[in-house]
Design a protein around this nucleic acid. Structure first.
Lengths: 337, 337
DNA sequence: TTGAAAGCGCTAACAC
DNA sequence: GTGTTAGCGCTTTCAA
C-alpha cells in the first residue's frame, strides 16, 4: 500500500531542505556539524533527514571538496594469507579515520599494471598504499605527477614523495647467518621465492653480509619451481642426493615442502638439517616439528601504513618518512641452534 | 626548470578542449568513444589529452551519470586464507568489466555493521556483494530501499532483490554421513566452528539428514574454543578420554588441531580415527597424513558472484537468482573409507 | 543565523 | 560534426 520504500526514491539535500523548510545551505551545515545553526533549526533538519532516510551523496561531496576519502591499496594477487593481516590492520585504522579502501591486485602482466595506475588516477583516490614490488619507478612517477600521497609497505623505496613502512629483513638474515656460522655451520642454503624478488634481494644481502663477516662467500641459493606441488616434487628428487646443515625458506609452504621432502628421504629435521622459515604463519606452528620462523608484525605493518597515510593527508609536511618495525625470531622444533 | 609536473596541475576537460581548440562536448565524445567525431578532430583531441596528461575525473563522471562503477564487497575480517581465492575471482572479473572494488570487513560488533551499511549507501556503490553471515535482514532492507543490487556468496538468502552464489554444504555432509554410516560407522562427531554459524547450520542439517535416513539421531556436535592454540590445548585434553570413529571439522586449522591432539595422545589417524576437513585448503595437503577434504570452488564463487552482479547491473530483469556450484570430495590419507 | 549563488568536472539532450 | 547549456548533489563564500 505504502510507497515509502517502493520506487527508487532519490532523496537529495534539496528534498531535506524542502521538508524542513530551510535552504540547502543550512542542511549542508547540519550534516557537516557546522556550529552556526540554531539548535531549533538543526533539530528540524535532523528530523527531516530521518524522516526521508537521507544519506549524503559521497560522490557529490567528493566533487565539491575535491577529495574522495578513499585510499587505493595495491597488492599482489597471490598470497592473501600474508596480505590478510596487513589488510586487517589497514582496514581497522581506515575505519577510524573514515577512509574507504579500494582494492587493486596485480598479476605479473606489466601491461595490466599501467591500467591499474590509470584506474587509480581516474578514481581520484586521496592516497595510494602499495605493497612491495607492485610498482615500477615509472608508475610512481605518474602518481607523483598527480601529487598522490603514497606509502610503501615492505621495503624502502627512494621516491621523494613516498613514505615507507618496513621490516629489516636484511638484518634478520644477517643475524641468523652469523649465529649459525658461529655455531660451526658451513652448509647453509636459501630457497628462492620468485614471488618476492625485492624481498629475496634483501634476504640475500643479509646472508652474504653474514658470510663476509666470517670471510666466506655465500653460494647456496637454490631455485625451485613456483607452487607447492611442483616444488615438493622437485625437492623430493633433490634431497635424494643432497643434504644441508641449514635450509632457509621464505614462506611456510616452501618450508613444508622441504620438511616433507626431507622426511620422506630419511633426512630428519632438526637432527640432520635445521629448517627456518623467514615469514611466520600460523601453519608453521601446526606442523610437526614446528618450524622456526620470524614473527613479522603484518597487522602492525598495515595499521601503521594507514596511519602514516592519514598523516600525509592531514599534515602538509611529514617529517618522518621511514618507519621500521621489528621482527622476532621464534626458535622452535625445526632447529637445533 | 620546467614546471610540467611541478605544482598540482589540475587538468580538466576544459583544459583539453582549450588546448585542442574544440568544445568540452567534443572532448567528452572522444573519451567516451562516441562515434560522431571527425577523425581529424579526434586526433587533435587525443594529442591534447596526451600532451596535458589528462585523465577523466571518475567522480565527476559518477555524479553526472549517477553511477560509480564500484562494487562494495563485505566480508568477515577473519580468514583471508579462504576469502583470498574468492577475492581473486571477484577482482579478475571486476577488472574485465572495469568495476572497482571497495573492501569492507565486519568484526562481530553489531553497532559497527550499521556504520558499514551507512558507508556503502553514502558511497553510492552500484552494487554490493556480501559473504555469508555478514548482513542481517534489516541491513538488507536498508540496502534494498536504496535499490542497490546485491549478491550473496555462500548460502541461500530469501531476499527478493538479491542473487545467491553458493555451494550446497548440506548435501555434501549428507552424502558423507550416509557413506560412513553405511560402512558401519556409528560414532561420528562434528567440531563446531563459531566463525561460521550459517554454514555450521547447513552442515548440521546435512549430517542430521544422513542420520535420520538410517533411523538414527545425531548428537555429536563438539564445541571447542575459537583459535588454533586454544582449541589445540582443549583437544589435547579431550582426546585423553575420548576417541571417535570419524571427526569432521570445518577448517584446516581445526583439522590440524585434531590431528596433532590425536597423534600426541596415541590415537593414530586414520587407523583409529578418520578425519575429514570440510573446507579444503592447500595446507590440508601439506601435513602428514594429508587430510581428506572437500574442494570448494572459491575462486569460481567469487568470479561468478561478480559476473552475476554485472548482469544485474546491465539487464533490468535477472531471471536466474540462484547459482549453485559443486564441491568435489577429495579422499586422502586421513580416512579409511 | 540563514539564504543565494557560484562552482566542482563531467554527460547528454538539444541546437546549429 | 560540433557547440551550448542544463543539470548531477554537494560545499562554500558572500550578503543579508
Amino acid at each position: 500500500m505504502s510507497t515509502l520504500n517502493d520506487g527508487k526514491k532519490k532523496v537529495t539535500i534539496y528534498s531535506v531542505a524542502h521538508e524542513a523548510g530551510v535552504s540547502l545551505a543550512t542542511v549542508s551545515r547540519v550534516i557537516n556539524d557546522s556550529s552556526l545553526v540554531k539548535e531549533e533549526t538543526r533539530k528540524r533538519v535532523e528530523e527531516a533527514i530521518v524522516k526521508l532516510g537521507y544519506r549524503p551523496n559521497a560522490i557529490a561531496q567528493g566533487l565539491a571538496l575535491k577529495k574522495t576519502t578513499t585510499i587505493a591499496l595495491v597488492i599482489p594477487d597471490s598470497s592473501f594469507l600474508y596480505m590478510g593481516k596487513i589488510i586487517n590492520g589497514l582496514l581497522d585504522v581506515a575505519k577510524i579515520y573514515k577512509y574507504n579502501i579500494a582494492l587493486h591486485t596485480t598479476s605479473s602482466s606489466i601491461n595490466e599494471m599501467s591500467e591499474i595506475i590509470d584506474n587509480i588516477v581516474k578514481s581520484r583516490a586521496d592516497g595510494v598504499i602499495v605493497y612491495n614490488d607492485c610498482l615500477t619507478e615509472q608508475e610512481v612517477a605518474v602518481l607523483n605527477s598527480f601529487s598522490t600521497p603514497m606509502v610503501y609497505i615492505g621495503h624502502k623505496i627512494k621516491a621523494d614523495e613516498a613514505c615507507n613502512v618496513f621490516v629489516d629483513y636484511k638484518k634478520a638474515l644477517y643475524e641468523l647467518t652469523d649465529k649459525y656460522i658461529q655455531e660451526g655451520y658451513k652448509d647453509i642454503v636459501l630457497i628462492e621465492d620468485k614471488k618476492n624478488p625485492m624481498m629475496m634481494d634483501e634476504l640475500l644481502q643479509g646472508i652474504k653480509k653474514g658470510f663476509k663477516k666470517h670471510n666466506k662467500e655465500f653460494a647456496g641459493l637454490i631455485e625451485i619451481p613456483d607452487n607447492y606441488h611442483n616444488s615438493y616434487d622437485y625437492l623430493n628428487e633433490y634431497f635424494k642426493d643432497n643434504k644441508h646443515q641449514l635450509v632457509i625458506t621464505v614462506r611456510d609452504s616452501q618450508a613444508m615442502a622441504v620438511l616433507n621432502a626431507c622426511t620422506e628421504n630419511g633426512i630428519s629435521i632438526p637432527e640432520e638439517t635445521d629448517l627456518v622459515c623467514v615469514m611466520d604463519s600460523r601453519y608453521t606452528d601446526m606442523v610437526r616439528p614446528r618450524i622456526s620462523s620470524f614473527f613479522i608484525p603484518s597487522y602492525d605493518l598495515g595499521a601503521l601504513a594507514m596511519r602514516v597515510m592519514t598523516k600525509m593527508l592531514n599534515d602538509d609536511e611529514v617529517k618522518e618518512k621511514e618507519y621500521q618495525l621489528s621482527y622476532i625470531y621464534k626458535n622452535k622444533a625445526s632447529t637445533k641452534v
